[in-house]
Design a protein around this nucleic acid. Structure first.
Length: 1131
RNA sequence: GCGCGCUUAGCUCAGUGGUAGAGCACAUCCUUCACACGGAUGGGGUCGUAGGUUCAAGUCCUGCAGCGCGCACCA
């Protein structure tokens, strides 16, 4: 047996044992070992970004997972902790792009897609996997043979499989929608990737002129005709007065905006329909003040009444910019306002923004727009204003709401996802054990509410990203059909391009168009019948359906609807007609009143970009019946209004409403591989989360082929996983979506328990961030203090679900703790003697029995803490038991035997020491894997054990069980056995306190005298002497103390005197005793009063009353003892 | 605005109706043969606030205040 160094040096130990574990395959899960006596336990790691670095959040998260995994192994389970990384689409691509620009001054477009992707892979090879090495340093016991990366070939296949599956179900569709656009990364983002931040901006006030439809100023005639319901509205005090009239009688509206640069995109002005100031102006028009170079008719926009407007805010007049604001877009939808996109994808202004703004960045354009307003004489004032702006979480720039064509997912399995999570435990009780089959528990359970709230407000998930690094969308487009464009860039089907907003206007426009282009009198083919028709004036007036719209009722909704429709085809007109460039076919669901229609409509595109609409409708459902009418699915329910996105989770099945183009193999195919020549893949990639939501089974080799999956032992054995450990910040991004994917693809929930960690903050409570520089590098901490220290310190300061204020002091504490453990074992080793000898019950001292009982209690506390995922409580128990109980008292008391003359007692004490230490090491192992292995091996505790039960490594040693009754009876362990020890330690504390109060240095050996209350074994007296650090302890029942000898008392053990020459002052001693007596009297008084209360006696449980009585008796005894001494002092 | 969390010693925080706790910091003393990354002793708390329930409240309930977080947003 080698001697152990005086201080623990983690560096000498950690690498050695980690290599050992890996070489011995200790982390490798084997499904074949799972059986009735050996249950499976599994965790999948939340995949960190492949090019990321370890931060404190990872430390917290992965330490917890490792603790769970190691504890499960010691519980005799077959453990799979499955590690891996994800490709982090935007983050990684941005990193590589930045490096490319910095080093070569190039953009990804300079390189091209293939070459750029090669760069990213090279980057991944170089920087990727660093974080995996870091996890190993932390001691993580992951099964590295199963490590996965989301862009692995197998994994990519899973992603494709999932996409195709959902696509065929009709849950994935392409739509032209308002999305969150990141002008820095040039991609769409999901709602979850947008972070609202308060921004200091300004509210700019400017005026617009109210005009007639022809552009001439509108002049009020007589008093305004305010509708009665508006006149009745009371405006708050100090509200904006309303429209103004100038000396020429013209009427002006004042508008407040934070984004004057979007004025060129305004297509209307909205007021509240019950606003008494403005209601009478609804239906009139205003002149857009910017881009004055445009002809007047292109600057006229209507004033609409919309309830969205709040008249308390600003001036009560809202400018409507449908193409650049989600709320405005909806207003635009409701009133048929066109959406004019005035920006380029990178956030600069395009030509539609007007001469002055075109080419400028949107923020620069804001300044110029204000200047322009000033020059035009319509600028009123600006005032500072703080409001929330959506930022791209990754790129950190304000997002731009933008209309674009994206792929969306209607979430699957929402119902199961909602129902599987157990509701919070109501009356504060700890959540008991494993959730019932098919159910899932959150820890802490309050996150259930957040989760359900999100599920209740689901919007379809925008899954396409305009990036190159990621899983490319497995959809292929055919080029081989005449004018069909490769990438179907949806033309801006705005109302501006529409010739009108109602049937009358459409007719007029069609007539004008026909006249201008000489269509009148010409022959065309009727697109529906194939019959030739000649266009006469009368046929345009009466038979509009040839060109346009048959159902007048539908017309006002069409321009709105078309943006929400799925385009299923773009074809040349057949037979070819020079006047019609193409025919686009769309499908959509439309609600009109109480009816739901499927609408299929064709758009005929004319050379001047004029579009005419033709449609067929099928009634699917009628509300009053409550039953589907002609619907294919009884689950069909109508969306709220024709323009709103159908909410995910509603029973409406798009597949029933829309025959997706992608099932028309002539144009588009959704499949893994290229269908052949002439086909090109969709250029976009999928959101990274669209791959990580498959993580719990895709990592286990899921294929989606039932037969193949049935043969997959890993998948069959370890899915569903047991626990998931993650941060609440990705509860929507990841957790919720994994649950849905679990049900959708595996038919089962993906995990049984979800543990949500807190967020690691610095001492001041600020989030850790690179920019603040307040995030310590965990590797530095490991180098300085050791991995075990970092783990212990982190766990100790991380209560369940609360944020963690990280302080390096915590790690220091962890190091000190490891050192203490090291030295306690070193002490044992220095004693030599036989290792783990048999304990002989008849030789157990009170101290032995006491520490065994404390050990039992600690095991029970730890089990309870583990059951409730309360790891900080577990560390607190370990700390208290090991340090305050084992080291401070037991080890010191044991020295009496170890340094004593009785070899049998000495051997027995060593046996107890070994027994307790071997338990301590096992209890500590999940928290402190390295040091416990080192000590387990060097103390020789591994020696006589079977290899799979601790003989090879402490990793497989059995987790200690609380002592059963037989064990306790055999060793005489009951609470009274410990009372003597407790009394000794109490008396010793009082004795030490006496020494301190009398200012006697420890170097001075003191001679105490004990007047025992009963019989006292010599060994017990020796323990007391040792703990008191006394020169001698005389036990003498007949001893008569000199008057004024300082004393402390123990009702159980007797009176402990400190006879001293020269320092005895009876008065002083009496005063000291009287102080004690006063405290006791006060306490006795309280207890007596309570016990005397009949209500207390009646209603308090017997256990409590007993406790009170016992305490009172103890205090009364003490009071008498003190009283006796006081009497002798004063007498 | 809605929801969630927090408020206990100088600091960071545990606390499960029944004696108010830990670590750090502080003060004093000690390098005694496991450990100064240590040991001993001590000081320090009307548990945010106002009510209520209870024999008994830091703990349960209600209101209020302050701080933090999430969601939704008013241009």
């Amino acid at each position: 047996m080698s001697t152990i160094p005086k201080a623990y040096d983690p560096r000498a130990v950690e690498e050695k044992w980690y290599d050992f574990w890996v070489k011995q395959g200790c982390f490798t899960a084997d499904p074949a070992r799972v059986g009735p006596g050996r249950p499976a336990y599994s965790i999948v790691i939340p995949p960190p970004n492949v090019t990321g670095m370890l931060h404190m959040g990872h430390v917290l998260n992965n330490t917890i997972q490792d603790i769970l995994a190691r504890k499960a192994r010691m519980d005799g389970k077959e453990v799979l902790w499955l590690p891996g990384t994800d490709h982090a689409g935007i983050a990684t691509q941005v990193q590589v792009e930045k490096a490319l620009l910095r080093e070569e001054g190039k953009t990804r477009y300079d390189l091209g897609r293939e070459a750029f992707l090669q760069r990213v892979w090279a980057w991944k090879e170089k920087h990727g996997g660093i974080i995996i090495q870091q996890l190993k340093k932390l001691g993580c016991s992951c099964d590295w043979t199963r490590e996965r990366f989301t862009l692995d070939e197998d994994y990519s296949r899973c992603v494709q499989k999932a996409f195709v599956h959902l696509y065929r179900k009709g849950l994935i569709y392409r739509g032209h929608r308002m999305v969150n656009w990141c002008p820095a990364s040039l991609t769409a983002l999901s709602d979850e990737e947008v972070e609202m931040k308060p921004q200091k901006g300004a509210l700019y006030y400017f005026r617009v002129l109210v005009v007639e439809p022809d552009g001439t100023p509108w002049r009020a005639e007589g008093p305004p005709a305010v509708p009665p319901e508006a006149a009745a509205t009371e405006l708050p005090e100090g509200a904006f007065p309303g429209p103004e009239q100038d000396e020429q009688g013209r009427t002006w509206l004042t508008i407040a905006t934070t984004r004057p640069e979007t004025i060129p995109g305004d297509t209307g002005v909205a007021v509240h329909p019950r606003d008494p100031r403005y209601a009478h102006l609804i239906g009139k028009h205003v002149l857009r003040p910017l881009a004055p170079e445009l002809p007047v008719e292109q600057r006229i926009m209507p004033i609409v009444g919309d309830e969205h407007v709040e008249f308390e805010f600003g001036t009560g007049v809202l400018k409507v910019t449908p193409a650049h604001d989600k709320a405005d877009f909806e207003i635009g939808q409701r009133h048929g306002l066109p959406a004019v996109d005035i920006m380029n994808p990178d956030g600069t202004m395009n030509a539609l923004a007007g001469e002055k703004l075109a080419g400028l960045d949107r923020f620069e354009a804001r300044r110029v727009a204000v200047e322009q307003l000033r020059e035009a004489g319509v600028f009123v004032r600006e005032e500072p204003y703080e409001h929330n702006v959506g930022f791209s979480q990754r790129a950190g720039v304000p997002i731009e709401p933008r209309l674009s064509e994206q792929w969306f997912l209607r979430y699957p399995a929402v119902k199961q996802a909602r129902e599987c999570v157990l509701p919070p435990v109501e009356d504060g009780g700890a959540a008991p054990g494993e959730p019932p089959p098919g159910r899932m528990r959150f820890h802490p359970d309050r996150w259930v509410k957040t989760y359900l709230h999100w599920l209740d407000n689901l919007q379809d998930w925008c899954i396409s990203r305009q990036l190159w690094w990621g899983h490319r969308i497995p959809v292929w487009y055919s080029e081989g059909h005449g004018k069909l464009r490769r990438r179907l860039v949806v033309p801006e089907l705005t109302g501006r391009e529409l010739p009108g907003r109602n049937i009358k206007e459409l007719r007029r426009a069609a007539m004008e168009y026909a006249a201008r282009h000489g269509i009148l009198g010409q022959s065309f083919l009727n697109l529906d019948t194939g019959q030739p028709i000649t266009v006469h004036k009368s046929s345009l007036e009466h038979g509009f359906s040839h060109f346009g719209v048959a159902n007048v009722k539908l017309v006002p909704a069409l321009p709105a609807l078309i943006r929400h429709a799925v385009r299923v085809a773009t074809e040349p007109h057949r037979p070819p007609t020079p006047q019609v460039l193409a025919v686009e076919t769309y499908l959509a669901a439309l609600r009109l009143g109480d009816q739901l229609f499927r609408v299929k409509f064709r758009v005929k595109v004319f050379p001047s970009n004029l579009r005419l609409y033709d449609h067929q409708t099928v009634l699917l459902w009628r509300e009053e019946k409550g039953e589907p009418d002609g619907a294919k699915s009884p689950e069909v329910r109508a969306p709220k209004d024709p323009t709103s996105r159908p909410a995910s989770g509603s029973a409406l099945r798009l597949a029933d409403l829309v025959e997706d183009v992608n099932r028309d193999p002539a144009f588009t195919r959704c499949q893994f591989d290229c269908p052949g020549p002439g086909w090109e893949q969709d250029p976009d990639v999928l959101d990274t989360w669209f791959s990580s939501w498959l993580w719990p089974f895709a990592t286990m080799g899921w294929t989606g082929d039932p037969e193949q999956d049935a043969r997959n032992a890993t998948l069959q054995t370890f899915y569903p996983t047991s626990d998931l450990v993650t941060g609440p910040d990705i509860i929507f991004f990841w957790v919720a979506r994994m649950i849905m994917a679990g049900y959708e693809f595996m038919g089962e929930l993906p995990f049984r328990n979800v543990y949500f960690t807190g967020i690691i903050r610095d001492k001041q409570g600020r989030k850790m961030s690179k920019t603040l520089g307040n995030s310590p590098d965990p590797l530095d901490l490991i180098a300085k203090y050791g991995a075990d220290a970092l783990r212990f310190g982190t766990m100790r300061s991380a209560p369940l679900g609360q944020d963690v204020l990280f302080d390096e002091k915590d790690v220091e504490l962890g190091r000190n703790f490891c050192n203490k453990l090291w030295n306690a074992c070193r002490f044992r080793q220095l004693q030599a003697g036989e290792v783990e000898a048999e304990i002989r019950p008849e030789l157990l001292s009170s101290d032995d029995r006491w520490i065994l009982l404390r050990l039992d209690r600690a095991i029970r506390e730890l089990d309870a803490a583990f059951a409730g995922y309360r790891f900080n409580e577990a560390t607190a128990t370990l700390y208290r038991f090991f340090w305050s109980e084992f080291c401070d008292w037991y080890l010191e008391a044991a020295k009496a035997a170890l340094y004593g003359e009785d070899p049998a007692r000495k051997a027995n004490t060593l046996a107890v020491l070994d027994f307790v230490l071997a338990h301590i090491l096992r209890l500590f192992h999940p928290f402190l894997p390295f040091i416990t292995e080192e000590l387990w091996q060097s103390l020789g505790y591994a020696k006589d054990l079977p290899p799979d039960q601790g003989g090879l490594t402490i990793m497989n040693a059995r987790w200690p069980k609380p002592f059963d009754e037989d064990f306790k009876a055999h060793y005489g362990l009951d609470e009274t056995a410990a009372e003597l020890a407790e009394a000794k330690y109490d008396l010793v504390s009082r004795g030490r306190n006496l020494r301190r109060e009398l200012n006697l240095p420890p170097s001075r050996k003191l001679d105490f005298v004990l007047k025992p209350a009963g019989r006292l074994e010599a060994h017990e007296a020796e323990v007391i002497r040792l703990l008191l650090n006394a020169g001698s302890l005389r036990v003498d029942g007949d001893w008569q103390p000199p008057r004024g000898t300082p004393a402390v008392l123990s009702p159980k053990l007797g009176e402990l005197y400190l006879p001293l020459e020269g320092v005895i002052d009876p008065a002083k001693e009496a005063a000291r005793l009287r102080r004690d007596l006063e405290k006791i009297e006060a306490e006795v008084g309280k207890l007596e009063q309570r016990l005397a209360d009949p209500k207390f006696a009646e209603r308090a449980p017997a256990r409590v009353i007993e406790e009170h009585r016992g305490r009172l008796a103890e205090l009364q005894a003490r009071r008498e003892q003190i009283g006796g001494i006081l009497a002798s002092l004063e007498g």
